[in-house]
Design a protein around this nucleic acid. Structure first.
Length: 586
DNA sequence: CCGGAACTCG
């Protein structure tokens, strides 16, 4: 019973185990036979099964681990690895420091590697630094895989300088180290540094082990997606084609996403259409691309007429979210409700409810929106209340606005936009006393503000503007152009929106500065002043575009005969001949 | 003896 054949058989059983009851049966058997204690190999195999497989159970794995009397480094590594890949990676730090305090067993390179993974996944920068120091102390400075994991942790913990320094100090690099750095920078606030690294990578003749691969393309394309610069996306795509790296499905999918986020929807759909074996992610990406560009009806058709009947893939929660999002951006209320109620095999999340509440709310069907909120199987979160508040503002429902504002206040949510929306509801009803009360509260409370900024690319350079910005070297020309723009749009009948009739998210914008100095107007004026007549203009904004800027952009597209594309936080607006692709519904 | 790194859709 205790011989090697039995062990081999059991190991095979553990590998093939596919349900949680079987896991428990195996556990019972290992305990009853004493193998759990005697055979480190089987114990580790069991812990791995229990902590990593989809039908395992971390709590159970942890209990089993704790019950073990003699543990090896492998036992610790396995359980730390399981926790590091689970929903609460940071709790592996407790186990790790416990391990350090007992010794033996001693941590090895793998222990540090798994713990560094936990640091990366829980954004624990200080932990990453300590692990790096410990790695050096334990003489592991030549372990490229461990160093790459640490580098990845630095990058994911928003410590780009530490990541770069580690990268430069690595005795030997391979492409994974480049990719970790690239991907980390691409996700952060400075995607252009990621692109600079990518250019450095493709312009130097690297040894084979460092030469770019599919993951490099994915990371570089993500940086382009975040930046929104179509020329960069083209360059990455072209490089991928030259190296034959564009056959990979993940590369195809990221290219679809990247082109869409760079405003090049046609090229995104070209890549999608020409992709042979589309996965669920491919379809979801294409649906999201259409939704983002306001093509809700096309997204619905793609979903209902192609994906459902003939794609062979089963929609998931993201699929439904994408389709609902398309309906929201196109104002397709009844289609959205139909899709929402047709969801099968997917439990609607707060985001799905949020989309439908948004859909009903914008259409003025506030009673239905509230009824849906009441019928939700979970408590509404802050985002949902903000959605309701926005709908109440749009349709002048003071009672609902106050209800939502109270709910937000009770949750401790204090964003600038919430105060502005509530005060706007009062302003429209001329309840100036209430307006003043909200204003005072806003002064007194600790209100969170996200500064709005916009940028545009001219001559291969990004030009970035904050609201009321005078830091640009050509700021005098820009403001002069802005005055000219103001005069021309006024001549076309534009009445500047005052705060009382600013409908949407002027939130988060700096209220002390006049709306005509909004960052998107500065970027637009700069592009108008510095690019040839007739060429199109792209502006990217980190928040939602404001109503006044939206109205001005429409008129500018007509007065100056320019196609203007604005990517805001949620979607694209394409202004042409005085109209916007969103149909003023956003 | 084995094992650890980079990676697409919200």
């Amino acid at each position: 019973m205790t011989g090697a054949p039995a062990e081999a058989l059991l190991e095979e059983l553990i590998r093939r185990c596919a349900t949680f009851p079987h896991v428990k049966q195996l556990h019972a058997h290992l305990l009853a036979t004493g193998l759990f204690r005697r055979s480190p190999r089987l114990r580790v195999a069991f812990l791995e099964l229990c902590s990593l497989s989809p039908f395992g159970d971390l709590t159970h794995a942890l209990a089993a681990f704790r019950s073990a009397s003699h543990t090896t480094t492998n036992d610790w590594n396995t359980i730390i690895r399981g926790i590091a890949s689970g929903p609460d990676p940071a709790s592996s730090f407790v186990l790790f420091s416990h391990m350090l305090s007992i010794s033996p067993p001693r941590p090895d390179a793998l222990t540090l590697s798994f713990t560094a993974r936990a640091a990366a996944r829980s954004s624990a920068g200080p932990a990453a630094l300590q692990l790096h120091a410990l790695a050096l102390r334990l003489g592991l400075a030549a372990d490229v895989r461990l160093l790459t994991t640490l580098l990845d942790a630095y990058a994911k913990c928003s410590l780009p300088d530490a990541a770069l320094q580690l990268f430069d100090e690595m005795p030997l690099r391979d492409v994974a180290a480049w990719n970790a750095l690239l991907a980390g920078l691409a996700l952060g606030p400075h995607p252009h540094t990621a692109l600079a690294l990518f250019r450095r990578m493709i312009s130097s003749s690297l040894p084979d082990r460092e030469s770019p691969n599919e993951v490099t393309i994915i990371a570089a394309a993500s940086a382009c997606a975040q930046l929104g610069t179509a020329q960069d996306a083209d360059a990455v795509h072209e490089f991928a084609r030259q190296r034959g790296l564009d056959a990979d499905i993940r590369v195809r999918n990221v290219l679809v996403d990247t082109y869409a986020k760079c405003g090049a929807l046609d090229r995104a759909l070209d890549v999608f259409r020409s992709t042979p074996r589309k996965t669920l992610v491919s379809w979801n990406t294409a649906l999201m691309a259409l939704a983002m560009h306001g093509h809700g009806a096309r997204a619905l058709r793609l979903f209902e007429a192609e994906m459902l009947p003939s794609s062979g893939v089963v929609p998931d929660a993201i699929t439904y979210l994408a389709v609902l999002c398309g309906c929201v951006h196109a104002g397709l209320v009844d289609d959205g409700l139909r899709v929402f109620h047709s969801m099968r095999g997917v439990r609607p999340t707060a985001k799905h409810y949020g989309a439908v509440v948004d859909l009903l709310g914008r259409a003025g069907r506030l009673a239905e929106a509230r009824a849906l909120v009441d019928a939700m199987p979970f408590a509404p979160d802050a985002v949902l209340w903000q959605t309701l508040l926005g709908a109440a503002r749009t349709h002048g429902d003071v009672v609902l606005a106050e209800h939502a504002a109270d709910a937000l206040a009770a949750r401790g949510s204090r964003t600038c936009g919430e105060y502005v929306l509530l005060s706007n509801v009062y302003a429209v009803k001329a309840r100036w006393g209430d307006v003043g009360r909200v204003r005072d509260a806003m002064q007194g409370d600790d209100v969170r503000k996200v500064p709005g900024f916009s940028y545009t690319e001219v001559g291969g350079e990004l030009h970035r503007f904050l609201n009321g910005d005078t830091h640009h070297e050509q700021w005098r020309e820009i403001y002069a152009k802005l005055e000219e723009v103001e005069a021309r749009v006024r001549a076309l009948g534009h009445v500047p929106a005052t705060e009382g009739n600013v409908l949407h998210d002027v939130e988060e914008e700096d209220k002390e500065r006049a709306i005509y100095q909004h960052s998107e107007k500065l970027a637009m004026a700069f592009a108008l002043a510095t690019t040839p007549a007739g060429t199109s203009i792209q502006v990217i904004k980190n928040l939602r575009i404001c109503v006044d800027c939206h109205a001005v952009a429409k008129l500018v597209s007509k007065a100056y005969r320019r196609v203007i594309t604005v990517r805001d936080r949620a979607r694209f607006h394409r202004f042409q001949d005085g109209e916007c692709s969103c149909g003023d519904y956003w």
